[in-house]
Design a protein around this nucleic acid. Structure first.
Lengths: 204, 204, 204, 204
DNA sequence: AATTAATCGAGACGGTACGTCGGGTCTTATG
DNA sequence: CATAAGACCCGACGTACCGTCTCGATTAATT
């Protein structure tokens, strides 16, 4: 989980405090959520976690690594949906994703990904974390639909994935910028709409 | 252009050096491109632009404003396409967008938007910069198609906009994370694919 | 005064705040006096001086330099005594010295000298600060006495200087270790005694 | 020897490794000699001694105690001289002292004393270590001379002690600051000179 | 022989200070 | 007035050390 999990110590010396990682990650997420990026401080995280700075730096080499990691551990199984139909699956996924992005930690994971992609020195560890893992479960949903014969084999799953995922991202971005938070019904309605575009097309 | 372009100077005293804005913006973009976000400093920008820090702060109130602005000035008329068909317009737009995001400045504009949306104190000035302006021209393209009778009036333009824009964003993100750069043919092929999903739907 | 007084800036940019040096030195001396060496902190000095840390580090390269300098500026004209007789001069000097060493700053100057002499990398700037300047004025007193014909030319001034200065140092060290502080009469008595040893010898 | 030699262990459990004290003290002295006070760290001492930190802290309560002790164990019997005359004794003593201070450990003992005397919280344990023990043997030498009838009973032994001891200290300080090391002949010459001042006085 | 208990090397722990760096402001002298 | 230079206050960065604690592994003396 930590950036450098070099478990090279075979019992020599005092073992690392078991709960520390979690405490620190929780604190990091809370700090990030409350104060935003510019107010996100290693000292603050350590203090909130009730931990010395060295304990943090022993596990993560720097601020970015910590936030990256903290944010990655919260991207649970957003895609584990199975309603029986492609439409149902995509709508459910869109709802999950949207809710994920309304949560500070979920949104942070996205922001960090964009940071990583922008840096001249690519952080690399996001390649799979986002581009593969995250989009993968959309692929799986589509593949399931293909097996069911719901959609022709000619469709490119990744394109659908990009549309759905991307649309939710833009949606979430728009509402965040406006400072609005959608309730469950609104979220479902948006999910329904964009699923409709992807599945039915605009031309018929 | 500048965040606070209060042109209150009525000719009294020394006029602002004409080329300064451009020099600073260019420097900002270069610094950002070379060093990334964490290496992007006001001192660095001023030094590279051959300008005093006060000259920068006289025009932009803070770092975010500068980067925002610098990045905004490069978002030209991505949406000024008119091929006569909705499909042609969307494909052309997707190509433009994708190229935009392959450019450091273009990508930066996106990253900044995500930063703005993540902060507890919303920067506000992005509301129009991204959610309206950027998505607007997709709306216009769709509206034009509706007028032409290409698509039924029932379609929701903003959903199409979100899908197209979002899909390009995810595509660009994915390739950036992998460190890949697409050539023109590849870009066009991707644009064709995702336009197909949005217009024709996955189900027929 | 500062360790690196490279006055290379000829009016360009904002001039260094005039009173800052003094404020910082005063604060340093107070902090040192109140909290001792182990409690002597750059942050503390800056805070007490009402100054940013960078303002301190702009003038002194590190903690040692600051304390060294602070302590050096208080070693006023301990040797500017002229009573007309060698005995009177030495006694007055001994009194001055003793009082100097009872003051935290004065004592600190000695401690710093011993640090400097102990380091593998000699700090160099102490060579004159202590061994020359400090002992020099004892030499001058003796030289004056030689000119007056009070003492034969055969006496080695530096030996006398070392005896007087060294005796006072040991005296001060002893009392400090015991936590005792001498009043004026006691100081004068001690000065008289050791001057007697140096001038009259123990054998007659 | 150790600060808290509470020999409370009645044989139960593993006995303390016999050679550890010495190894640690040697390491401490070497570290101090090579790196000076600011580079003197407990981790460094433990590492050099090939010992765990707990083994050090089991014997000394803190850094100061260790250095104090390390330094004290090297102050051998500098004063065990008996040439038959006061002059001979003092010269021999001065030579011994000077050599002692040319040794890093010997010098360290002095520096530690000055540190101890400077602290607001007096370390106390130096009171005897320096002011009594160290100066005492000068007293004994003088007392012996008094018994022999060499000097009148009126002389104050402690004043002579302070002069001799102090002069050697200043001498050693001066040469250390200049980075010079004296050979045996030079040392003897200096000892002769300052003994002459103390015994014969400057005035006759 | 098994148990007990102190010590050992190693190294993680919560803190605190270090010296550096950057943000945004302020103050000069010079256009 | 604007400008280039650069000092100012502030506060976070990542590192190093302190003195404490916690491991598993010795190492005797006591059962």
């Amino acid at each position: 989980m930590a950036t450098s999990p070099e478990d090279t110590n075979r019992g020599r010396g005092r073992p690392r405090t078991p709960g520390a990682e979690k405490k620190i990650i929780d604190a990091a997420l809370e700090e990030y959520g409350e104060r935003g990026w510019s107010g996100f401080t290693m000292d603050g995280v350590a203090r909130r976690a009730g931990v010395g700075k060295s304990t943090v730096y022993l596990r993560w080499q720097d601020k970015d690594s910590l936030l990256t990691d903290a944010v990655g551990t919260r991207s649970g199984d957003l895609g584990s949906v199975d309603t029986g139909t492609l439409r149902g699956d995509l709508e459910a996924l869109a709802v999950n994703l949207f809710r994920h992005f309304q949560d500070p930690a979920g949104w942070a994971s996205l922001r960090v990904a964009f940071d990583a992609a922008g840096a001249s020195a690519p952080l690399g560890r996001f390649t799979e974390a986002v581009s593969d893992v995250q989009l993968d479960f959309v692929d799986q949903i589509v593949a399931r639909a293909v097996r069911r014969g719901e959609v022709p084999e000619s469709v490119v799953p990744s394109s659908i994935a990009q549309c759905v995922y991307g649309a939710v991202v833009m949606l979430a971005l728009g509402f965040r910028l406006q400072g609005r938070v959608l309730n469950d019904d609104e979220v479902r309605e948006r999910a329904r709409r964009l699923t409709s575009v992807v599945l039915d097309g605009a031309l018929d």
